[in-house]
Design a protein around this nucleic acid. Structure first.
Length: 260
DNA sequence: AGCCAGGCCTCAA
DNA sequence: TTGAGGCATGGC
């Protein structure tokens, strides 16, 4: 008897779920993926038509990989909406991870105007090969620590946000009880968090599907639908009106399909 | 070599 | 409230 989680590979595709830009703390060697979040580790690989998730916290990773959500129903609802057929067919077993909110705040501050490979490297240095640092630990770090990560001008954002959250640990959880506009307002009060990063935090760190992060790739997608781009907040509103309460899922299918 | 990256901040008007 | 300009770093 062991602690493995075993799911059908038609339900969870490892590569499409981990390498779609929602998550950064993974490594891959010979098709075996190592996932790190908080102080936890999971090993994922395919065996036949199954995916094996070796782990030491079954309940945590069952939730992390969103295994109680019926993606067949979600995909069916989205399938006839603009651009969704190709995007869903490109990654039919992609799932949205239920990530830790604080870790997501830090990671997506780093993500702004950055490349995914470099984002991963910066986060790796932040974690120094071990657990994701706690809020208390980060709040105790001086600015020099953040400069040493090679995060560029984002070092000040990280330092300032660690100070803000360190002085009020309740902020992260209080956002769970807010409606989305209030949550965006609270998040953008943090340093280095603008509208797009706030949407990413809500989608990936709070599993809010009534959000639609608009980045450079989604702007290309928008152009495919409407023929032109416009003001970012206008595009966001139109996209959410198109995809409704499933916007978060739609956004991730579209992002991954466009970026490849 | 120059452009670009899951954009944000500051500062005008 | 909105829009331009600046911005560290590194992959391509």
């Amino acid at each position: 008897m062991n602690n493995d989680i075993i799911v059908d590979s038609a339900i969870l595709n490892i590569k499409d779920t981990l390498e779609n830009g929602q998550f950064f703390r993974y490594s891959q060697l010979g098709g075996v993926y190592t996932v790190r979040t908080l102080d936890k580790v999971a090993i994922l690989y395919e065996r036949g038509d199954k995916v094996i998730i070796e782990n030491e916290d079954k309940a945590y990773f069952h939730n992390f990989f969103d295994l109680d959500t019926d993606y067949a129903a979600i995909k069916q609802s989205l399938y006839t909406l603009p651009l969704m057929k190709d995007a869903i067919d490109h990654a039919p077993a992609l799932r949205i991870l239920r990530q830790d909110a604080f870790e997501t705040v830090i990671n997506f501050i780093i993500s702004a105007n950055n490349h995914i490979q470099r984002i991963k490297a910066i986060i790796e240095r932040l974690c120094a090969g071990g657990a994701f640092p706690t809020l208390t630990a980060l709040a105790a770090r001086p600015i020099e620590f953040y400069r040493s990560l090679g995060a560029g001008y984002r070092d000040n954002y990280l330092y300032n946000t660690a100070q803000i959250l360190g002085n009020n640990h309740a902020i992260i959880n209080s956002i769970r009880d807010m409606d989305t506009p209030a949550a965006i307002k609270a998040l953008t009060a943090l340093s280095g968090v603008g509208p797009k990063v706030a949407d990413c935090i809500l989608l990936f760190g709070y599993y809010r599907m009534d959000t639609f992060p608009v980045d450079t790739w989604i702007k290309k997608v928008y152009k495919d639908i409407y023929g032109d781009v416009s003001n970012t907040s206008v595009m966001r509103s139109k996209l959410i009106s198109t995809y409704g309460d499933l916007s978060g899922y739609a956004q991730q299918y579209l992002f991954y399909n466009k970026r490849g």
